[in-house]
Design a protein around this nucleic acid. Sequence first.
DNA 1: CAAAGGATTGGAAGCGTTTCCGAGCACGCA
DNA 2: TGCGTGCTCGGAAACGCTTCCAATCCTTTG
Lengths: 330, 330
Amino acid sequence: MADVARRAGVSMATASRALSNHPHVASQTRARVLAAAEQLSYVISPEASRLAGGVTGRVAVVVPHIARWFFATLLEGLEWVLRDAGLDVLLYHVGDATDRRDFFQRLPARRKVDAVVVVGMPIRDEERDRLELMGVHIVAAGGQVENYPYVAIDDLSAGRQAVDHLLFLRHRRIGMIAAVDPAEPGWPATPGRTLAYTAALAEAGLPADPDLVVTVPWGGLSGADAMSRLLSLRDPPTAVYAHSDEVALGAIRTLRRAGLRIPEDMSVIGIDDHPMAELADLTTIAQPVHDQGRLAGRLLLSLLAGEPGGGGVTVPTHLVVRGSTAPPRV
Amino acid sequence: MADVARRAGVSMATASRALSNHPHVASQTRARVLAAAEQLSYVISPEASRLAGGVTGRVAVVVPHIARWFFATLLEGLEWVLRDAGLDVLLYHVGDATDRRDFFQRLPARRKVDAVVVVGMPIRDEERDRLELMGVHIVAAGGQVENYPYVAIDDLSAGRQAVDHLLFLRHRRIGMIAAVDPAEPGWPATPGRTLAYTAALAEAGLPADPDLVVTVPWGGLSGADAMSRLLSLRDPPTAVYAHSDEVALGAIRTLRRAGLRIPEDMSVIGIDDHPMAELADLTTIAQPVHDQGRLAGRLLLSLLAGEPGGGGVTVPTHLVVRGSTAPPRV
DNA sequence: CAAAGGATTGGAAGCGTTTCCGAGCACGCA
DNA sequence: TGCGTGCTCGGAAACGCTTCCAATCCTTTG
């Protein structure tokens, strides 16, 4: 930068002001500095800038899965907004429980970012305490985390939409394939989707048959297994509600292999509106995943701008009727 | 850090050495410093550290798509290795052509990283020139880029495996659905996969019928459209080779809607071994995507360690036979 | 037993910006 | 014409660490 200043015939102070777009710099001077910088193809050193300035211009994004459609898509939306605002995205993947413990213990992002976005992972109390240590803004996306500003769908409502649709079609024996995070067994990632099922059945005056509920780790193959279990019942359901489209697609494979027709012999509904759902003609509850990322990004930006930034945003979901659901055969 | 040094009763120089694991520090002293740091819950300021030290401890990863399975999975493997090595991952998504131009023009990662990994995107000459300006190591993953160390599959060979399998099954009229990047129309992302088709047919002494080749932007729905086009031919193929599994899955949807049976009426083969391929019982050429990310990470690490690091790594692909291919009906 | 050599430590000079504090200056108003 | 005001701009002090250079001390060898 000294070179630039010299070439422009100004002091470093002025050069700095001109380059970082500060006021109180004569436009002519600014032009001269910018020209000099251009000629020397000079770019500011972020390290030094941050050291002196205080902010880092970076945001940490913490995701439990990268390769899954939901997370990757949300990340895409988020990155889009943040990059647009000139912020850099530091990606942290916390896969299994070990990773996770390690992440919250070591806090590798500490002092490296101005804010943290946790994507689709419930945060435990002790983890929240660790996170607080970073002393930066925190936003949750794709899954509510109490006490943090969040952007998410209402899982309970989404689940209700799915089950209510099956009930509306006059299904009376409805199975559920509940998906849990493989990395966190026993810890329902989306309790709302389970609650929705029991609540909807209860409201419809239907008995709660535990045989109709199968809980499996998330994933297509798990869904296939779960469907096998349901088909092995003495009195199988006429419709199945899966916690996610991937699981539902797995279930469909089993049904197809069993020679059952969809939807004539069995209705299937999922949640997400995964791109594959369209290809597989799967009825589902759509959620705006990309938007959730974008909104979380905006929420974060307003927080960084010092605006109050309310509690959270719940984005709507809606039923997408395709060919995998129909009234049961009488 | 001054606080830590004071508390440990040493100079800042020693504190720095102890904290950054340098040699020539008495183990007792080191322990004292670490304890002091622990008590003050002190973490080093990366900015200051980088400023003084020179390296940034960060790697830029440039991807043209985040949400697609291939890219996200590769990224997952890559992140895993880099994080393990204590490097932070700075994610840059360059989506459409505008993004792309902007990225190479502005080089937002400049001076922020020690290395760059470009994932699955061919780099043009002028783009390479810009990249060189960053003056850091560059590695390509999931798609060869001449002049850079790379990790990738051999598209030509993968394509040959696919088409040869269909030929082996005695198909003589084989269609191809070629996928191009929607963001870069007219620029074949994987020319090798196309070359493989023409070469294999030529070797088998089969005529090259341009009607049998349909080129569409990447994606499931495009694949569905492409299949429709093939089905509308006066003399449709008996087997279809798709450049990727997603496209193949789209093709399958069309076949199913048309009431055709797979593989009896039409064989379909893809490339990738996407998780959905297993669910859809799709024969495919599997490539180790996660591994490509990991290997690229290792390659980068060895480069950063100053090792020579040869030209590139080609990872093998292999045929996975499932239920979507069979000999043609006679 | 003395000198050489290696381990350990401290002092201090950067690393490249930002920003506070003033100084210089032109302009407008009384 | 004299003086206050608001821009511009330069000097220099941080920002928090790393590392070169010496100095000190302990150990080993002739």
